[in-house]
Amino acid sequence: MDKILEVKDLNFSFKTYGGIVKSVRGVSFDVNEGEIIGIVGESGCGKSVTAQCIVRLNPEPPGYFEGGSIKYKGKEITSMSDNEMRNIRGVEIGFIFQDPMTSLNPTMKVGKQIEELFVQRKIYSKQQLKEKAINILKLVGISDAERRYKQYPHELSGGMKQRVMIAIALVGNPSVIIADEPTTSLDVTIEAQILDLLKDLQKKLKTSVILITHDLGVIAKMCDRVLVMYGGKIVEKGLVDDIFYNTKHPYTSGLLCSIASLETSKEEELQPIEGTPPDLFSPPIGCPFAARCEYAMDICYKAMPPEYTITNEHATLCWLEHEFANHVVFPCKRILKEEA
């Protein structure tokens, strides 16, 4: 498989009145052609910022690249001009946003918002544009597409709006789609529909998908590979099976423990991860998770752990993998795969 997107040692920060927030600190990963890669982590861990870096949607300023590179099909994205970026957005990399309720312009007809991608590129005639928009609406499973084409966003339900968002992301036939928590603001039945749709379309169109979520269930259902992010860093990455069955980072384990499953009895208490994420104004020198980690050793507070490679695909950022560390067996190995 060819690498379509290569992110190397990406650092992205925001200048605020309170100081500099180091949102993304040395993130590296690749996206292969036609795969679904998941990024999971709690709020504020830098997963959305990472994703938005790829299409440069973070406001710059106050945000700025501190270092690293993002290569899309071999071309460097971090140094592109606004015009070059415009040729990437939409047609090469599509983006699906978190909240369909607020992500569509309330004063513009749905069809126009889909067509807009092409309006300035002048490839199609008006009639072709309309056909294209209606076809894509049908593709994302919107019935009565001709009527919907002429409607405003407030006339659609939440699930339908998210379908429109997906249509917008797909209409330019991009090679990569970034879906930033596409189902967080939808209810559970619609969530399943949207995820199924996304997966179907991904298979049909052979696009790569970067799926951002904080729901491990979604990861299990959708992804080939997973990046677990914490405190602006990728603390563990690997194939879905590696992450679920051969967990190598206490944070990943904590995430797995905190999920309720159908087998969880009423008496059994969920185990949250105690404490709060690190302050990214002044991130700790050592492992960002050390303060909340029950296995933390002295070294964890003093130095950043290096990346330990477990297998070709599986790697973790944890001192526990050091040869001198005690061997730890994590308590939680959820069988999420079958469940989903």
Partner: peptide, 12 residues
């Protein structure tokens, strides 16, 4: 958010 959406479409 919809301004970001517009931006993601690569329009000027």
């Amino acid at each position: 958010d919809y301004i970001k959406t517009a931006k993601s479409k690569g329009i000027s």
